[in-house]
Design a binder for these strands. Structure first.
Lengths: 174, 174
DNA sequence: ATTGAAACTTGATCGTT
DNA sequence: AACGATCAAGTTTCAAT
């Protein structure tokens, strides 16, 4: 499965907007027959579009109240970013690592439970030899955070359809 | 539900590590009886710890290939950050908005489908009056991204337990 | 790839401790 | 709050198109 068709996208948006993967519910809201919903979701899983079956958590309720955003500058070298990226990813509490274009080499986002954990993060940065410099800031508030299918709620259906080469009328891209 | 006990945490980690919310599967891997797993998950939902039933997507497969990380500087004023934060959140494609301490006021992460959408993002920034300056960079690679219960995979069970006031032995915090 | 109907598995409930 | 047994409900399969 390389591109998605109109129906795949409808199903994904239904999942995002109804907060559920339930075949029954998706059938009810989309009017697509149960067995077809099942078939499609299975195809999306097989095609690697849906990679995980999960739920979202209220981070603060499990104690991950501190958010740290760091910029990281590192030494250049052959394939260095993969190696350093892995090292950054392995630090406890690090949830996002981006290798970036521009003035910084990496942007790292970590959720931590305590001041001690923040200190440990900084120490872990320092223990990575190739890292030249880091600059971290705290998030006072997380105003928005949607990653997963919920991400789809941030888009117009038409935008996603267009990304799959589907025009506004009923043309098919799958 | 204010704090979680050992069993809640075990169930959440089981969900994270087995990529499923299935009562049956969690029962199998944890040895906690089905009906108890059901009862606990229900409590976690009622308590607002589990906020959403979802799945993770391969973003690139739905065309959200471009990641932009922006720093935003804004005018100060009474409750200004909530208002501006909302406006930033409403921009199509914006997935994460953090109100920060330090040299910048906001950090914004957006996933976009095209160059056109990047231009639109910048225009949308400019259309917000209170915004003084923005600085954006592209992520070349997303090395790591885990938000949701999958986030738990980034932590030691002990760290999360400690955040709930649970010691290493069998003491209960819920 | 789609579907209705059948078969089966599982989630939800209830009563007891 | 925990849990075994029960039942309703949903998921998955099947055969036909």
């Amino acid at each position: 499965m390389s591109t998605l068709d109109r129906r795949d996208i409808d199903i994904l948006f239904a999942i995002a907007n109804n907060h559920t993967m339930s075949t029954e519910t998706i059938h009810e809201v989309t009017d697509i027959p149960k067995s077809t919903v099942h078939y499609r979701i299975q195809s999306l899983k097989d095609g690697g579009v849906i990679v995980n079956d999960l739920c979202e958590l209220a981070r603060e309720k499990i104690g991950l109240e501190i958010t740290v955003i760091s910029e990281v500058w590192a030494e250049y070298g052959e394939g260095y970013h993969e190696e350093i990226g892995e090292k950054l990813s392995d630090i406890e509490g690090v949830n996002q690592v981006y290798f970036t274009m521009g003035d910084t080499d990496f942007v790292v986002i970590a959720r931590l439970t305590s001041r001690d954990m923040v200190e440990k993060l900084v120490e872990d940065y320092e223990s990575i030899e190739e890292i030249r410099r880091t600059s971290s800031k705290f998030a006072i508030t997380t105003i928005k955070e949607t990653v997963g299918v919920s991400t789809l709620r941030d888009y117009d259906v038409e935008t996603v359809r267009a990304a799959q080469g589907l025009s506004e009328d009923g043309e098919d891209g799958g």
